[in-house]
Simulated assay, not measured.
Amino acid sequence: MIINTKILNVDDYYYGVFMTISAPLTGFTENELQSTGLAEIYYKHILGKIEKATFIEFLNISKNAIESSQTPDQLSAAISTQILSNPSTKKIAQDVITLWYLGTWEGAYVNDLSYKEGLVWNIMQAHPPGAKQPGFKSWSIKPVNSNS
Rank of each mutant, 00 (worst) to 15 (best):
N145D: 11
S146Q: 11
I83Q: 05
L38V: 00
H127P: 02
A93S: 12
S69A: 15
P87M: 04
T36A: 06
K52G: 00
Y14R: 14
I41W: 00
P87E: 05
L25D: 01
T81A: 12
S80C: 01
Q133F: 12
N86F: 02
S140H: 08
I141Q: 09
K132Y: 07
L8P: 02
K142E: 10
S76E: 13
I97P: 00
D73E: 15
Y15H: 10
L25V: 01
T36S: 11
S22Y: 07
W105A: 00
T98C: 06
W100I: 00
A93T: 00
S114Q: 01
G48E: 06
P128H: 04
D11E: 15
I61G: 00
Q74D: 12
Q125D: 11
K91E: 10
S62N: 06
I56D: 09
A78R: 10
G37P: 04
G135I: 02
Y15L: 05
V10M: 13
P128F: 02
L25G: 02
Q133A: 11
S140C: 09
S148R: 14
Y14S: 11
I21P: 08
F55E: 04
S35Q: 11
Y115E: 00
S146V: 05
S69Q: 05
N111G: 03
S85L: 10
V110E: 03
S76Q: 13
Q82R: 15
K137F: 15
V10F: 06
Y109E: 06
N9C: 09
T98L: 07
Q74E: 14
Q70S: 13
E106L: 11
K137Q: 11
V144S: 10
S68D: 09
Q34W: 02
S148N: 13
G107N: 08
E106I: 04
Q133R: 11
P87L: 05
Y14E: 10
Y42C: 04
I3S: 11
S138F: 15
Q34F: 08
M1W: 14
I79N: 05
I3H: 11
N86S: 06
N122D: 09
Y15K: 08
S85D: 12
V17I: 15
I97A: 03
S68H: 02
Y43P: 06
G27Y: 04
N147C: 08
Y14M: 12
L25K: 06
T36P: 05
V110Q: 02
M1L: 14
V96G: 05
W121S: 02
S22N: 07
T26K: 09
D12A: 13
M19G: 04
P87R: 01
S148E: 10
P143D: 12
Q34H: 10
E30Y: 02
A39L: 03
T81C: 01
N147K: 15
V17T: 12
Q125W: 01
G37C: 02
I61M: 07
E67S: 11
A65E: 05
